[in-house]
Amino acid sequence: MSRSLMFPGDLLAEFERLQEQLDQAFRSSHGPASIRAMARGSFPPINVGTTPETIEVVAFAPGIDPQALQLSIDKGLLILAGERKKEVPAGGDRVSVYARERFGGPFRRVVSLPEDADPGRVTAKYRDGFLRVSIAKRESSKPRHIEVH
């Protein structure tokens, strides 16, 4: 039996390596990627959606003080930055730590918005660890029904 199979930690690392290889394989087969292509596994994970009126960005960012979140739009980039403190157990050296998987530290994520995003009309809401940012689309780019006479 290979050494890695005997140590679960190493096994996880193996899986991660495999995942990376797969990511790489798929990435290269998709042709040129955006220079700001988002890396998987970053904190917070982000989903992006569109509606006819808005662009919706949802970040899965639990345990963050919404006041401490920095959200800005600059030159078509939506930037989400902040910090999540690493949990320090009370009780000093009498505490055993069995798992410490939750993210801690500063984070920064950048989403490049489509050209029709209107940086002047943005709303953001934070609830249950979900951050939802709605960016309105410019009037001129909204789908319009054109009457034929």
């Binding site: 949990e87 157990p89 009780g91 730590v97 069995y98 410490r100 998987e101 993210f103």
Partner: peptide
């Protein structure tokens, strides 16, 4: 989901 697990007395 990622977890933190601590044990004290």
């Amino acid at each position: 989901p990622p977890v933190d697990i601590f044990e004290d007395e």
